[in-house]
Design a protein around this nucleic acid. Structure first.
Lengths: 241, 241
DNA sequence: CCAAAAGTGTTAATGATACACCCATGG
DNA sequence: CCATGGGTGTATCATTAACACTTTTGG
């Protein structure tokens, strides 16, 4: 164990973020269009270098704020979770780059471009189904993030992170249906959610007209619970984590 | 995004391994006694530098083979899984070290010291209950590993990784009871395991005298399944992952 | 025969599934 | 008044949990 800082070819340490949201019935990911080689013109996950005095978590929030126009308050509060670290020697053609990948879940929001600032004009929400040919190994990272989010919905209360502060049970169900790409039985979903203590809390008296037509739906807020016991298993297939 | 390799203070990238086993009714972790400062004399997780042309996974197996006397065949085959990456700026007092932590599960085996070679004489199995005051942030890593393993037992077939190639259902149940620190109902455990296709496969005709007394138990091998559907939930508390 | 460990059976409670049905709103 | 989405009720089935019981071995 030799700790001379210059004993080895230096490693660069970066972060990459798979920021997911549910928009109009399909899962979207926040991508940046690359301006330089390699992969110039290709879409990539937002990310960048970890600075000498930063943890990876801190760097992830900083890069997200810099590269996208997302409001700082949202970036500070959003649910950020380590996915895994990607360290294949040739994942970046220029030098040795080890990247710590994170997953973040956000409610639907306007295009980041609208907010402006920094590199935000190159950031866009892209349906994951259309996110092929990403730069570096970002396609792999995105696939891992989807798998992870899908299985976390089963046994955690994470789905509320995809919803605005106040949401209807129909919206919450749409999150599950979008991420899992299945349809769920509404009455059963509703009972399951309401039977789990601390998953959601009713907002007294409030209601929202969802799509113009139909009965106004009651509003709920995310509750204090973080785990789902027993879990809400998706139909027929097994989680892979 | 500047990719000059020397633009930043260099980061060292290391791996740390939380290698767990079940021995005599309690969970043990493989530790190395440190020979040099800092933390000289303290126990630490095995680990070391990622070399310039290695992935973290490769480095983890190499370091494990070098630092402990574990047989190379076992090291090559063992279940190794990324836990998470620890990147707090001051986690190592000497320089900036980002560490990718892994968890490995192995069946009970002799003390690595007996096998000799390398630094193996400083490696030992220590009950996790007694593993306090570890070097660096290794106490945190170990705690994270325990949590992760506990919740993976719920929804994966991973428990067989703690068992020798052929094992009894009593031994498998002991793995669950040891990791979760609970007791399980034997008939129900048995039914659950046998009802999950591909979890275990009976070894025809074979039987083993477990503790001298009692009826000989049938032997099983790990099956091809990797996930448990529905999960085998531990009594009363929620997983944290 | 007794203790210990493996293995089988039975029942009640719990949770999941699949529906049928009613309510409130906009057009 | 009807289409649409929200919300309730209920019968049925699968899974779990609790516990009594039988079997096979060593001392």
């Amino acid at each position: 164990m030799n700790y001379d800082p210059y004993a080895f070819e230096p490693f660069a340490v970066t972060v990459d973020l798979a920021v997911l949201t549910v928009r109009g019935g399909s899962l979207h990911v926040l991508l940046i269009r690359r301006g330089q080689e390699p992969y110039a013109g290709a879409w990539a996950l937002p990310g960048g270098f970890v600075l000498p005095r930063e943890s990876a978590e801190t760097a992830a929030r900083r890069e997200l704020a810099e590269e996208t126009g997302l409001p700082p308050a949202l970036v500070a509060a959003l649910h950020l979770e380590q996915l895994r670290t990607y360290s294949e020697p040739d994942r970046d053609p220029r030098m040795r780059v080890v990247s710590v990948a994170f997953t973040a879940l956000v409610p639907d929001m306007p295009e980041p471009a609208a907010e402006g600032g920094g590199d935000a004009d190159r950031a866009r929400w892209v349906p994951v189904a259309e996110a092929a040919g990403l730069a570096f190994d970002h396609g792999l990272i995105l696939a891992d993030a989807r798998r992870r989010v899908g299985s976390k919905l089963e046994y955690t209360c994470l789905a509320t992170a995809f919803c605005p502060p106040e949401f209807t049970l129909g919206e919450l169900q749409a999150v599950y249906e979008t991420v899992w790409d299945t349809s769920l039985d509404r009455p059963n979903f509703r009972r399951k959610v309401l039977a789990t203590p601390g998953f959601v809390q009713a907002v007294p008296g409030a209601a929202r007209l969802t799509g113009g037509r139909g009965k106004p739906a009651a509003l709920y807020r995310a509750g204090p619970a973080t785990t789902l016991h027993p879990p809400l298993l998706r139909p027929s297939e097994g989680p892979t984590l």
